[in-house]
């Protein structure tokens, strides 16, 4: 097992509490379960992880937070959760535009024009493709 990379002071990197990594195929079912438990959808976070995307879905139950984590190869379609949590439509459009994650079946799909305009930068949040690099 590889050694955990150490912080300058010898401390291992901090990890988000209460995260569960799930398979993409299980994502919708897990979000549905969160909805049935009455969890409030807080937001989603996308990270550019080289060949992959990492997606976090953040939920709250009162003061407590929990998170679902999914890692997918770039180009893999990701099902929208906006059919379960309608309020996810804004952040899903944002992730789709800024990172290029092919999120499918968003209840209100802005077709790439929530934040970006024609002739503007594409997927500006990707590490290798920045709006000022051209």
């Amino acid at each position: 097992m590889p050694e955990t990379p150490k912080h300058e002071g010898g401390r291992p990197p901090v990890q988000v509490d209460n995260v569960e990594t799930v398979l993409l195929t299980d994502l919708t079912a897990r979000v549905q379960a969160a909805h049935e438990q009455g969890l409030r959808f807080v937001t989603a976070t996308c990270l550019d992880a080289g060949d992959d995307y990492e997606l976090y879905y953040h939920f709250a139950h009162g003061a407590a937070l929990s998170h679902l984590h999914v890692r997918v190869k770039k180009g893999t379609p990701v099902p929208s959760i906006s059919g379960i949590y309608m309020c996810a439509f804004l952040v899903e459009n944002e992730i789709k535009e800024l990172f290029g994650v092919p999120i499918t079946d968003i209840v209100i799909d802005y077709k790439g024009h929530l934040l970006l305009t024609d002739g503007g930068p594409t997927t500006p949040m990707l590490k290798r493709q920045s709006p000022t690099s051209s």
Binding site: P5, H7, E8, G9, P13, Q15, V42, H58, L65
Partner: peptide, 28 residues
């Protein structure tokens, strides 16, 4: 503070308009 941030975390506070949520990822 000494050193540099390393790891991933979330931070949450209450703004006048409601909950503010930050996710931060750092690699040292």
């Amino acid at each position: 503070p000494r050193g540099r941030p390393d790891g991933r975390t979330v931070s949450r506070v209450e703004q006048p308009r409601g909950e503010l949520f930050y996710f931060m990822g750092a690699d040292g």
